[in-house]
Design a protein around this nucleic acid. Structure first.
Lengths: 248, 248
DNA sequence: TGCTCTAAGTTGTAGTACAACTATAGAGGA
DNA sequence: TCCTCTATAGTTGTACTACAACTTAGAGCA
């Protein structure tokens, strides 16, 4: 597995060696290769397994610890943090909502209500760091799991960073998949969280009667620090479980 | 500053050298020593400043990157992530609520409504990994900022891990400060987030009429992986801004 | 003015060595 | 037999060095 790993995964994944090892270890952890509270192999053995230096393994393990997936104990080892299966919807992991739904074993769909290019609002221009007369792509969509609406999203894209072909693809399918194809996927997002009670949010006959939502107000950034898109996502309370790992 | 740092901070802070450097750098970042988007000193220079090896600096920087405070760019440097002042209420940073309020320049108080030792409920016993007939300490409190109620908390402690003196101190002041004094402060927590609309939550005349809360349902763990306390904290919507940094 | 290329600077990875800490097994004593 | 202590092996933490990979800025040239 030693050299084979570096050959195989460098094509699929991106980022540094340490990031690749981190992502692979995360898959192994979430795949329950080790039981909760159990000990994973030592740094020397992992370095052997992946054919990388111990420094690289330590980089990956530190990152996983900050994410709350493992506990590293000096002189003892690294242990799987006790979490439920719901970790896959971990809030600090920046990933596609639809992909998360699919990984949890459900059928995910996106229903576009509207898609238009218009001038940016003041708030949008500020978040996207563009002038106020710039054009932006605004999309309103509903996200469903097994046919049931779980969220309503209002996204606004900085079209200066994107080509018309990509814009079309974004408005039709998964945002993350489209951005990934041109290597412009966001690596970081800043989100505010709010509780919202309103009947003005959802639409259609599947609109929840309670009107109770968890709002994620986000700005997504590229690796070079530039904002690529911003948006509000209203999650129907109770339909989606958000987990967050907090560390010192 | 080189040797002085290691002498000074090893008394106040805990954890490995890398953790101490990380905490110190976090203070410098949140203190706006560098402007948003600006570049912090290189790894070699920081290693000089702190009198530690570059490996140790890299450990700290990686952790700060995972927390979303900086962006590290290969061949270029580490840059301050663009965030507002509200970062100090970063949701993935496990810290005392009252201390966070104070750091934001407000006066924080805790008003205890009730404090009792009783048998654990089924849910509490499961979360705390104790038998169902075990005794637990249950406290109901309101948290205020500048005299205004910002949250209601319902906490339950595993008293097997604590002495009577500490239990008394917990019920009177800050939980984190009390646990810190016996080096049993939690290093990790797992939290669910919910939007709640109910008039059964708050009490007193300051109870918000809207009844709209952001609920944090948490379990706190010690470094050895054992749960120390669990609890529900209901934040009055609009009074407390939660920020979260999401990374790939 | 604009472009290309070079060089300096920065982070990423590798390897080695030793320090600090933990857990275990075993010796020794009550 | 049980308990306590100790030695020891195993693991993570820190240090130092060296080089690779990448970015940026500036010199030089057309």
């Amino acid at each position: 597995m030693s050299i084979g790993f570096r050959k195989n995964l460098s094509k699929e994944t991106s980022g540094s060696l340490g990031d690749q090892v981190r992502d692979h270890l995360r898959i192994r952890i979430l795949g329950h290769e080790w039981e909760a509270g159990g000990k994973i192999p030592g740094e020397f053995e992992l370095a052997d397994q992946y054919g990388v230096a111990r420094v690289t393994i330590r980089t990956a393990l530190r990152s996983l610890e900050t994410q709350g997936l493992i506990d590293i104990r000096h002189g003892s080892g690294a242990y799987i943090a006790d979490f439920g299966d719901s970790v896959r919807a971990g809030l600090q992991e920046l990933r596609s909502i639809t992909q998360t739904i699919r990984e949890m074993g459900h059928k995910a769909e996106m229903i576009t209500r509207s898609s238009e290019i218009r001038k940016a609002t003041a708030t949008e221009a500020k978040d996207l760091q563009i002038s106020e007369d710039s054009d932006v792509l605004h999309i309103e969509r509903a996200i469903t799991a097994d046919g049931e609406v779980v969220a309503f999203s209002y996204d606004t894209f900085n079209i200066e960073e994107l080509t018309p072909a990509i814009l079309k693809r974004i408005s039709k399918g998964s945002v993350f998949a489209a951005l990934d194809s041109i290597r412009k996927h966001p690596v970081r997002a800043r989100a505010e969280i709010h509780a919202i009670s309103s009947n003005e949010i959802g639409w259609g006959r599947d609109r929840p009667r309670s009107g109770l939502y968890l709002l994620l107000r986000q700005v997504h950034y590229l690796r070079n620090g530039k904002p690529i898109f911003t948006g509000d996502t209203f999650f129907v309370e109770g339909k989606f479980q958000f987990i967050i790992h907090r560390t010192v």
